[in-house]
Design a protein around this nucleic acid. Structure first.
Length: 573
RNA sequence: CGGGGCGUGGCGCAGCCUGGUAGCGCGUCAGCUUUGGGAGCUGAAAGUCGCCGGUUCGAAUCCGGCCGCCCCGACCA
């Protein structure tokens, strides 16, 4: 009868910190550091210590179970990729500085994988020949590398992180839709099992390329993405994609012709609003000069609105978009930013935001430094407007579907699913023969979940001033057994007995056998967030009981020694 | 990439302005006392003051360069 080897706190490496680390801002970052889950190695680079790795493995296991449920097959692909592969898909250039690049001893170019569309597509291209082999869902849990411009908030935006990425391969778009829906379903299950509330929002596909995409967002102030939601109709979208209705503006009757007036030193909407004879922001036209594919274009918005660059990219049909440089602008329009306008401009394409339709009596730049025009009637005075949706949604906008006021909240992107269409299969030549014997490109989808981000998002959602409150499903341990004083023989031996009994029931238990004062042990247990704490102390023990403390509710109940195992089994399922 | 801040025993910080033997709290180690929410006393170990160079009799401190980290913004599947 070999003794069970016990998980003893005294022998484990759980370096908790008494004080808050100076460099951690986000709550999850602070608690992961203090609780001994992670340590930093460099900007955006973190080591997972044993406790952190236990949590990561829990998340990992849930993800695997759920992926297998939809028949996904696990791979493990290389993190080191030859440049040729990325040149095939065109992303070697597209990815820009976010990609870690290196050369081998022969000077051949390589990169560290940011994502694995290319590698998976290459395998599909080389191996899949017939529609009979479809559909396929392939996935892996792998380290991704991204040279972030600004790593931050601990593990929330790292330069190296763990991602579950899966890819679906279907014969046609109906099949791809099914694979997409399967993933949406499985993602809901994964987040729910991790104890994370998420909302699904319409998102833009960015450099991934593709038609439709949905992000899974955990609402949190620690996040970096803004999401727009409507409590009326359930509309939800990433701010960079959101459509909304601006509060309408009633213009006074104004049939006068445009009139130039001097505005010396006035360069901003705000200044012009203050300027005597100027106009409030909502009665100004903001004229932005952008360069798309090396050609200047004008983008017009209401003065109090902001350009949404994602929409600009969609409108202009290219990602090669940047603000114009002052010299370029002066050459084309004769004035610098601050005095620009589109009245009489025929030599450049002029895109006009929908909210400017029908507006009159507006004020805008005169294309002459230090001068503006008033009495501008948008439809009358702009030669050939190309109407477009350009404005970014903002707090205070109404829902464009049901006109309720929209909410704007910060959130953490924990998952993202894309319909890729044939973007990669076309460029990389992944085709199969269909039932009619015709060669067709495989229709693909791509689906990601950030594992460390789940950890951090869960902490952001489940903590209190004492520390983390892990959901049982991903806690590093389910139960910690602590005796108030390990030098009291009865406490210590009862603790070991309970520990052994719980282990026999298959529970994940930690025995805090440290010769520390009880306060230290309680504080640590709270900090690292173990869901249940069993305390062996003189008070309860005198009555033949132990105390059972629930971290999530801070409730303590006394349970008799012979019932504690059953009670925990009941609570932990 | 722009702006701001910081770099001093393991952690959190003071010292720098005004150059002169490197300090505090926590932690660590040993001993004794203690044991229900981060104990007390005694003793001890532990620091190339981010790196390189300059000024000076003398630099943690002044000057120059570089590196690293954090925050805000830009950026970001």
């Amino acid at each position: 009868m070999a003794r069970l080897s016990r998980m003893r706190w005294s022998g484990l490496f759980i370096p908790t910190l008494r004080e808050d680390p100076a460099d951690a801002e986000a709550i999850s970052h602070r608690l992961m550091l203090r609780g001994g889950f992670i340590r930093q190695l460099g900007a955006g680079i973190y080591s997972m210590l044993p406790l952190g790795f236990r949590v990561l493995r829990r998340v990992d296991a849930i993800v695997r179970e759920e992926m297998e449920r939809i028949g996904a097959q696990e791979f493990l692909l290389p993190a080191l990729h030859p440049a040729e592969l990325w040149k095939e898909s065109g992303r070697w250039e597209e990815m820009g500085e976010a990609m870690f690049r290196l050369r081998d001893r022969k000077q051949a170019e390589l990169c560290l994988g940011m994502t694995h569309e290319e590698v998976f597509t290459a395998i599909a291209r080389d191996e899949l020949r017939s529609y009979r082999q479809l559909p396929q869902i392939w996935y892996q849990i792998q380290t991704k590398f991204r040279d972030e411009a600004r790593p931050k908030s601990g593990v929330l935006r790292g330069r190296q992180f763990t991602m579950k990425d899966s890819y679906s391969f279907d014969l046609d778009s109906a099949g791809a839709d099914r694979s997409f829906d399967l993933h949406a379903e499985v993602y809901r299950r994964i987040f729910a099992r991790c104890g994370l509330d998420v909302i699904e929002v319409e998102a833009s596909s960015g450099a991934m390329g593709g038609s439709e995409s949905v992000e899974f967002m955990a609402i949190s102030d620690a996040g970096e993405d803004w999401v727009v939601t409507c409590s009326g109709c359930g509309y939800a979208a990433n701010l960079e994609k959101a459509i909304s209705a601006a509060a309408p503006i009633e213009d006074p009757e104004d049939t006068a012709s445009p009139e130039k007036f001097a505005t010396p030193g006035i360069h901003t909407i705000e200044e012009l609003a203050q300027f005597p004879g100027g106009a409030p922001a909502e009665r100004q036209i903001k004229t932005l000069a952008y360069v798309a594919e090396e050609a200047l274009v004008l983008l017009l918005l209401r003065g109090d609105h902001e350009l949404n660059e994602v929409k600009a990219i969609e409108t202009l049909g290219t990602t090669n978009v940047r603000p114009g440089r002052p010299e370029e602008i002066r050459e084309a329009l004769g004035a610098l930013p601050g005095s620009l306008g589109a009245v009489g401009v025929t030599q450049l394409p002029v895109y006009v935001d929908e909210t400017l339709r029908g507006r009159r009596g507006m004020t805008t730049g005169a294309n002459e430094d230090g001068f503006h025009l008033r009495h501008v009637d948008v439809e009358r005075d702009l030669p050939s407007p190309r109407w477009a949706d350009l404005r970014g949604a903002q707090a205070g906008d109404a829902c464009s579907k049901c006109s309720k006021l929209l909410e704007v909240q910060k959130s953490i992107e924990v998952g993202h699913i894309f319909k890729l269409g044939v973007r990669y299969s076309e460029s990389m030549g992944a085709r199969v023969l269909d039932a009619a014997g015709k060669e067709v490109p495989i229709v693909m989808g791509s689906y990601g979940i950030g594992l460390e981000r789940i950890m951090a998002a869960v902490i952001e959602a489940h903590h209190d001033k004492h520390g983390i409150r892990w959901p049982v499903s991903i806690a590093p341990f389910q139960v910690v057994v602590v005796s108030v004083n390990v030098k009291q023989a009865e406490q210590a031996s009862r603790a070991e007995q309970i520990y052994d009994d719980l282990r026999k029931e298959g529970l994940d238990v930690l025995l805090d056998d440290r010769d520390e004062r009880p306060g230290v042990k309680f504080k640590d247990a709270d900090l690292v967030g173990i869901p249940y704490r069993v305390v062996l102390g003189p008070r309860a023990l005198a009555k033949g009981n132990v105390e059972l403390f629930e971290r999530a509710t801070s409730q303590t109940v006394e349970v008799s020694l012979d019932q504690i195992v059953a009670e925990l089994k009941r609570r932990l399922g």
